[in-house]
Design a protein around this nucleic acid. Sequence first.
DNA 1: GCGTAACCTGTTTTT
DNA 2: CAGGTTACGC
Length: 753
Amino acid sequence: MDYLDCLNTAQTEGVINTQGPSMIIAGAGSGKTRVLTYRIAHLIKAKQVDPFNILSLTFTNKAAKEMRQRIELVVGTDARNLWMGTFHSVFARMLRAEAGKLGYPSNFTIYDTEDSKSLLKSIIKELHLDDKIYKPNVVYNRISGAKNRLISWKEYSNNPVLKAEDESSLKPQLSSIYQTYVDRCFKASAMDFDDLLFNTDLLFKKHTDVLNKYQHRFQYVLVDEFQDTNISQYTITKKLASVHENICVVGDDAQSIYAFRGASIQNILNFEKDFPELTIYRLEQNYRSTQNIVNAANSVICNNQAQIKKTVWTSNPTGELIDMIKAETDNEEGKLVATTIFEQKMNNQLANKDFAILYRTNSQSRAMEESLRKFNIRYKIYGGLSFYQRREIKDILAYLRFVINTQDEQALKRIINLPKRGIGPGSVQKIIVAAYDHDISIWKVIQNIGQFLPGRISQAVANFAIMIKSFRIEAERRDAFETASFIAKGSGLLKGLYKDKTIEGLNRYENLQELLNAIKEFVDNPENDETSLGAFLQEVALISDLDNQPDDEKNKDDNDTVTLMTIHSAKGLEFKHVFLVGMEEDLFPSQMMLSSRADLEEERRLFYVALTRAQEKITLCHAATRYRFGRLKTCEPSRFMEEIDPKYINVVRRSRKTIQPVQNVIYSKRLFSNLQSTNNKKFSRINHIPSPDFEPSDTSNLSEGMKVEHPKFGFGKVVEMDFEGSIRKAKVNFNNFGEKTLLLSFAKLKIHE
DNA sequence: GCGTAACCTGTTTTT
DNA sequence: CAGGTTACGC
């Protein structure tokens, strides 16, 4: 098989041994995704397995999409029928088909975290509990944790250990909140994220015929990022694979960073117990990073006690040391990063997309953003508020949700008085209470409001009911796009946003249009086998912002941007030059993770993930003071930086002066496009080590015709002098590298003539 | 029921 | 700092 040529021995083993249970322990950068994709391709091409019989589970939609594309490259369009996706999306799809067996309609709503918390909040209120003790956040995590361990509300209330825990934290009523919450979700025909897994397991337990069907169908089951699976995910997967036992899990315990979400390394140990026939493969050669990076990362992770022994090594060049930069404030940190990116681009002929700035918390992106703007460096932020979480989008989605599922209590609460129709929170509460008192649906109460609530409010509610009915009629006759535009107009949402002429209002209006475009695209896409509004809603409920959001469409041809994201979202990605900012105690490691050894070790693994994203260069930054919760605080350098073997670290001292000159200068786009065109791939990996005696000269008298030396490009001759804003630039023809444009405030040159 | 202003509080990562 | 909640006047 020709596609096996690009694999090493260990990788090939992992690809061709397709029968029986196997576990691939894959170190960072060892080609794990490559093995997984080729394994699937091998099944289809060499073993003639029908893609219909293969199930492949990942954690992000992006990973699934990428893998599908890579498989298609090898096997062609055969890959279409593969069941490949995130745990949540695959099982949501399964539940949609089998919902009736659990008493759910197939158009059930998926509650996101916001919906769940707001429901919990009202339940806590209705049970007359103090929301200062029963904080919705804490309650949510507690219930979520139970569901992830497949503990039902009944089992929860009978469990003495959990009961004792709740009593000692002064929350004895937690089990009744759990019970009410489950009941309300069911009555609203809604499932939260955890239900998608919990109910799948329930379905398999209650209906063995359904389990049987899928067990026989999925002859091969593959799981990516196995270290991040929680108990419910593992249990479901195990059940599905238990007939054919061709299950292959791929993961790296050193990169397990989702314990807070219920992931447990225990699964790796259980796997060995559950499948004693197991074959274990190890991928230990790193193809991604320089030796310095691999060794530095190893020197950090060996501080962890909980780990599976393995030796990650590389035959790549030694590479540069890890730079460590100290800034006085968080803003200066941003400036230093931007300056360094600018410099590196000039000196190493790199493009924006070669850089990533990673941080622990989303809020740290601000300072970075500001300074990158000042330097006119294009960037893209991932994470934070995703498109589908914006207020205006959630508003219209709530309308669509309610039209599809009139049981959806959370959607109703959102839209019943939006735009304002004189139905205040008091009336809404009365409607909900009436519904539960008479044990009928909220929608029934609204339709017959005169019987339940007297007075002028009933007229407003009746009008609302008429409007929703007209929407429902529309939804039956027309496709998703037409329905959505009809509702956007008919509800008054579009008009309200159109009237708002502030910048934000304009943005919101555009976002709404963008959403309508997205629905249109969904309807027109021939790959979607179902294009109903309900199908669209299910899809967007599970979309996260690492996947392409409508925003991306606008700048399709401008992909050369610096990447800004949290370390968590960077997992699975790689960049030439990684900046890791905010390396301070209490921030990274986070102060919330200092209480137990296990938590601290998870933070350390997170640090390990960050380090191993880099191919060539890492810059660690920390600030001496930083604004946190509105207060200026002094910050100590992170303990993690001291854990790196000092022989891989280079402490950079920068004078404040070097970061000043760029202000007030607007760099033309031309300069950057020039850079890109000269960015010949052949030179993108330059490992020129400057001679120890290289002393940059004063370049104030530099002029055309002079002979100069550059630390990376060697000798060359100045062809042309010019200005870029107030900064002098020189075009130099290098003997071995051709013409480069250098900004003299940044480039280090030695003059020889 | 609505709008505004003063007050309070949390303070991590994501499907 | 930002977002949510409360108190109060209309």
